[in-house]
Design a protein around this nucleic acid. Sequence first.
DNA 1: CTAGACATTGAGTGACCACTCAAATTACGA
DNA 2: TCGTAATTTGAGTGGTCACTCAATGTCTAG
Lengths: 185, 185
Amino acid sequence: MRYRRGIEARERILNATRSLIADVGLEGTTIKAICSRAEVLPGSFYNLFDSKEQAILTVVREAIDAVDPDPGHTGPDELTDLIDAYLRFVTEQEDLARVYIAIAVSGGRNRTELKNRVLRHHEKRVERFAAAVSRLRPEMEADEARQRAETLVTSLNGMTLHYVLDTDFDLAVHARSLAAETVGA
Amino acid sequence: MRYRRGIEARERILNATRSLIADVGLEGTTIKAICSRAEVLPGSFYNLFDSKEQAILTVVREAIDAVDPDPGHTGPDELTDLIDAYLRFVTEQEDLARVYIAIAVSGGRNRTELKNRVLRHHEKRVERFAAAVSRLRPEMEADEARQRAETLVTSLNGMTLHYVLDTDFDLAVHARSLAAETVGA
DNA sequence: CTAGACATTGAGTGACCACTCAAATTACGA
DNA sequence: TCGTAATTTGAGTGGTCACTCAATGTCTAG
């Protein structure tokens, strides 16, 4: 059980962790910085979390879940819906998008836990895109659809990577143009 | 002036730095790790470099330069040559490719020096690709060619990012397919 | 109101970080 | 072979890291 006070502190810590990863990346996200932003002392942090890693993983899970719209949904998607949902995610939840990119790279280096999570998520995403591509182009072979879906997903990641470095980059224009050219969406 | 011994130590340090960034990323690249791999003691390191940052920057410059084939060349390129050269760079100099991706993300966070370097290089790369696209499709507007070139470059980065996480990913197939679909190369 | 669970405080722990330096050793032109 | 400059040695510096803990303060069910 937790008292109201602890629940609020926990929320502040997660917000601080999320914005820190977005602002300065995983390496700059220290206990001291988290506590300072959350207005909490280290002792309180460790009363609420077992480790720094646990707080980070909570935020990362949140980011990965947020990439996929309509979670739990199993039916078919339109490709344009998938792309628009992703664009909405990146622009409306920029912090989470930065978290997603940060862990997609530096997170997936050594830490097996994060790396597996990233790769598993990538697989699911490609499959969802592949189904949408097949729906849009029924005449296309399944293998070909899957390959184009993977091209799309990795390319979207690359564009997002550039977007977080240069927010003048028009992600939406490039993403839609890419979808139009590769699968006629 | 440097003695032979110092020149060799410097070379070992740069090799160690390069492979460390490739293996464990920027955050895992410590003086201790560099010295251990280079078989050098910290005092020797600081006899040859002003700081850890200097050694890293030297390697990063090397990586950025290696992305562009035929440096100093100013004439027109074929788009397929540019793509093939990039694929050769990624597969034949995987360490440098990993360095390039590592700094494209985590490097471009806080450190203004690295970030500016990355963005400047991106601009030049896009321009070179745009020229190649215009050459391939003379009827295309310059703006459109540039936009497609930028789509291409950011997408290639995204694919490379995925490739360094999952070396089973067939970078060449996806890259060539992307080029074929977006500009008919 | 009170008891006991929960939360905060903040100094302290050992480990590791980038980096230094004086003394000893090695290289190499003259 | 000698003088001096380059290099190596390795213990040591101050700082920051993630994390701990006993004491104190706060909450809330009954």
